[in-house]
Design a protein around this nucleic acid. Structure first.
Lengths: 142, 142
DNA sequence: TATTGTTATACTCTATAACTATA
DNA sequence: TATAGTTATAGAGTATAACAATA
């Protein structure tokens, strides 16, 4: 086998995205932890705030994790007083998860951080460029 | 506090990238595991094949993990007979890591998988679009 | 029988701290 | 003292399987 001529082979686009995502994720984790948060907590709180998920099943799907994994995280959040769970009287299989006041405050702190982080990321990009980026990324997972 | 008027707030660009990356990563893991591989193994083998890293330190940096984490992975790879390590006689602190024949075969299997995966990802994109995507992503982590 | 969630358990990837051996 | 790597230990995030409660 001989070395191929021509331009050097480019890194696979998938791996490149992983690398960028990993770097962004680490920076994001640092920012969130500075206000006492972490990524799964943020994803769960923001899903709860959106008000859409009615059940833990839906919440798990929204966050992209398994039910058992969600239970694990909710236990931590409940232990830290950020959420409260109570059975739905109409369907006692369902646990209704709600933010406590402390959870609301935690959410607000993280929200500020996320907005600042995002605005810093967007900095230097035009709206059109960001739109292009979103569209191209979206087509990758269609 | 009242609901804001105007267009709905878009998902932060960073989180959007995380979501896309996570989905791609899971699909990639499935493909790799079908040929007996996994992501860290692939990253390590591909770094070794590039021939650049002379020491484990450099290898760890190339893969983006800590030295101790690399040791952990290399132990697994050595146990499975994919790599061999031996001390450099010129500097006996250094471990030279090399692919065994079995490691070479594993690399080739994963390589085929990665190329197929990447080509499937690129499908439906023009070269120009991919170039744009790479450039925009690159600017995010400058 | 199907659905919702929990428990028990374990795996993977990662990390830090303390260490050995070399230089 | 500094560098290369290992060992010991732990933590975060995730998962599957078996289960209980409810519908």
């Amino acid at each position: 086998m001989s070395t191929q001529p021509g331009p050097p082979r480019q890194e696979p686009i998938g791996l490149y995205i992983q690398r960028v995502a990993k770097e962004l994720n680490r920076a994001f984790e640092v920012e969130l932890s500075a206000v006492g948060g972490n990524v799964p907590t943020w994803l769960i709180l923001v899903s709860l705030k959106s008000g859409k998920p009615e059940t833990q099943r839906q919440l798990a799907d929204a966050v992209g994790i398994r039910g058992a994994t969600l239970t694990h995280h909710l236990e931590g959040l409940e232990r830290n007083g950020l959420v409260a769970r109570e059975r739905d009287p109409n369907n006692r299989r369902v646990q209704k998860v709600a933010l406590t006041d402390a959870g609301e405050e935690a959410f607000q702190r993280m929200f500020k951080t996320v907005v600042a982080f995002d605005s810093q990321l967007r900095d230097g990009f035009t709206d059109k460029e960001l739109e292009t980026l979103r569209k191209l990324l979206g087509r990758l997972t269609e």
